[in-house]
């Protein structure tokens, strides 16, 4: 499992890979945290998320937009994430537990202000049991 960040024309993105869709989303969460602050947050508080989507790409964008909301509304930055994805009603349902730190921007060095996760150039796919993702964020 791993993630990396990359630059686009005016913005930034996250690439991740993992051995399941849930772990892939967990890696994207860590990528989001790294872009938002170069200092690691502490896993001192927990947030739970439940989300539905029609397909994996949509799920990845919606999951990251949940993290954008938490970061912007309460300064919450992820330190670790566990995510499980199940098939439901012809689509997907995610249950995730995010550990991290609220009001983190007052204590941590500030990175990029992520406005949103986008569908631009979105790639989320599985091949031979290996999941990979590339998501572009509006900065």
């Amino acid at each position: 499992m791993s993630f990396s960040t990359f630059g686009t024309a005016g913005d930034a993105g996250i690439r991740a890979e993992a051995d399941g869709l849930g772990p892939l989303l967990a890696e994207l969460a860590l990528g989001f945290a790294e872009l938002s602050s170069p200092e690691h947050a502490e896993p001192v508080e927990t947030r739970g998320l439940t989300l539905a989507a029609r397909e994996p790409g949509e799920l990845a964008v919606r999951f990251l937009n949940e993290l954008v909301f938490l970061a912007d509304s309460e300064g919450f930055l992820p330190a670790a994430a566990e995510a499980e994805v199940k098939a439901k009603d012809g689509g997907l349902e995610l249950e995730a537990t995010i550990k991290g730190e609220a009001a983190a921007f007052g204590r941590r060095a500030r990175g990029l202000l992520v406005k949103a996760a986008t569908y631009h150039g979105l790639k989320v796919k599985e091949s031979g049991g290996r999941w990979t993702a590339e998501v572009v964020l509006d900065i």
Binding site: T5, G7, T8, A9, G10, D11, A12, I139
Partner: peptide
């Protein structure tokens, strides 16, 4: 208008 990415 931006000419290079933030990373670059």
């Amino acid at each position: 208008g931006r000419l290079m990415s933030r990373h670059e």
